[in-house]
Simulated assay, not measured.
Amino acid sequence: MEIRFEADSGMDRGWAKVVTHPSEQEQWKHLEAALQAAEKRITVINAINNRQVTLEAGKVAVIEAEGRMCSVRLITGEMYLLNTRLKFALDALDVPGFIKINNQTIINIRYIKEFSATANARVEVLLTNDSSYTVSRYYINHFRRSYHG
């Protein structure tokens, strides 16, 4: 199979579109597995047994400040700890699609289901797992620039 790469500035950063001939459809699972294996991974701590676990960064839905560490919540609801402060968590991830929405929270914009305006010029964000978070006034302009919904 010949592979050809093309850039499309209309696509969001962090996304890829794979186009194949219909007869190559049986290869899709193999291609998907190879691309997911190449995805950025982060090392977190399982708080139950204090062991380190490696996760795909794209599966992280929310990162919240927890003192000198961060709690990492996957979209499936699993919770882990990240051994860094929130202000360094975005650098540790180094993955597009994560934005800071207030002084305590970073979210993955891929999992935003909907958002709505609330009182005091804030925005309430609802994720696909039905958890909600507030975008503070300070971060609202960054949120608007980053999220294209």
Rank of each mutant, 00 (worst) to 15 (best):
I75F: 06
A34N: 06
R144A: 15
I42P: 03
P96H: 02
I75Y: 06
N103D: 07
E26V: 12
T54S: 12
M11L: 15
P22S: 06
A89N: 00
F143S: 04
L127Q: 06
R144I: 15
N49L: 05
I63V: 13
V95Y: 06
Y80P: 00
E32G: 01
E24A: 11
V44A: 06
A92S: 07
I75A: 07
E124C: 10
L82Q: 02
R144M: 15
N46M: 09
K87R: 11
E66S: 14
A16D: 09
N108A: 04
V125S: 03
Y138M: 15
I3F: 14
L90M: 06
L127F: 10
G58D: 06
A119F: 13
I42D: 01
K17S: 03
G67W: 02
T128E: 14
L86C: 03
T84K: 08
T20W: 09
N141L: 15
E124M: 13
V135I: 09
S71C: 08
T118R: 12
K17N: 02
F5A: 13
I75D: 03
A57F: 07
Y138R: 15
L31K: 00
M1Q: 09
Y147Q: 02
R41P: 00
A7C: 13
W28P: 02
Q52L: 12
I99V: 12
S71T: 13
H21W: 08
E114I: 04
